[in-house]
């Protein structure tokens, strides 16, 4: 296929179009036995016209085994500890640290030191557990927000919300970020470091992963967790931070984004 040489120059030049030639149709055109008429054609997704392109798309999807943007070996750095006060985790690659930081220190409740997977869940947690107004308001109106981002439903009790989560959103009944408030649990909320892998029979005590359940059952005023601290500090896992400044209370800390 030989393209006119001027064509490439035309692509480089600015937008525009030739003045259209006058259109002048004769009714005899396309009259029987002829049938041509200029037509716009739409093809639906299953049309066989798309077979070749679709097959190539799937060859592309399957053919590849690993990513090509060859990720350089994680550069090793001298071992260092997490800088967040109270956290003593040690790292030898920056990636591991970054992942650790994002997972554990990014969305953390400043009252009970729980880490949450998302800002949305943290906000809900703070509201429900540490905001004294919440209790008062929740007696008058539905205050328990649905945990699913994008769903705006609110409920009178956390139980109603759980029912909603299970029924409408098909969430598991034991969703770990929505443990029901227990009536007066043991005073060792954030203690065990054991992974919440309760599967193999150990269902007694949830770990810090199960954030919502674990903080103390009553609405804790700001000082209370502090007061309790000494009683269980010997069981505080190394990954949990009690320092100031990294965890989130009511104030927003959307400042950090240098890792991105």
């Amino acid at each position: 296929m030989q393209l006119p040489p001027a064509l490439h120059a035309r692509l480089a030049a600015g937008p525009g179009a030739a003045e259209p030639l006058p259109v002048e149709r004769n009714p005899a055109a396309g009259a029987a036995p002829f049938r041509f008429a200029a037509r716009l054609v739409h093809f639906p997704r299953e049309h066989e016209f798309f077979e070749d392109g679709d097959v190539q798309r799937h060859l592309y999807l399957q053919d590849l085994f690993t990513r090509v943007a060859v990720e350089p070996e994680k550069p090793r750095v001298p071992e260092f500890t997490c800088q967040v006060a109270g956290c003593c985790q040690v790292f030898d690659t920056l990636e591991d640290y970054e992942h650790h930081y994002h997972t554990l220190h990014r969305n953390m409740c400043s009252f009970c030191k729980r880490a949450f997977p998302s800002g949305h869940l943290l906000d809900i947690h703070i509201l429900e557990w540490h905001d004294s107004l919440f209790q008062i308001l929740s007696e008058r109106q539905d205050m328990y927000q649905c945990l699913v981002e994008g769903c705006t439903e609110k409920f009178k009790t956390s139980k109603d919300r759980k029912d909603h989560l299970v029924r409408c959103h098909l969430y598991p009944a034991d969703f770990r970020f929505d443990k029901p408030k227990k009536s007066r649990g043991p005073a060792t909320p954030i203690a065990t470091l054991q992974v919440p892998a309760d599967a193999l029979g150990d269902d007694r005590e949830q770990s810090e992963g199960d954030a919502m359940e674990v903080c103390s059952e009553h609405v804790a005023p700001r000082t209370e967790p502090m007061a309790e601290r000494p009683t269980y500090s010997h069981r505080i896992p190394s990954t949990i931070c009690f320092g100031q400044g990294v965890s989130r209370g009511f104030k927003s800390t959307k400042k950090r984004s240098k890792h991105q």
Partner: peptide, 11 residues
Amino acid sequence: TLVGLLTSNQA
């Protein structure tokens, strides 16, 4: 168990 580990706090 695997889901438990997925939701663990150990990054």
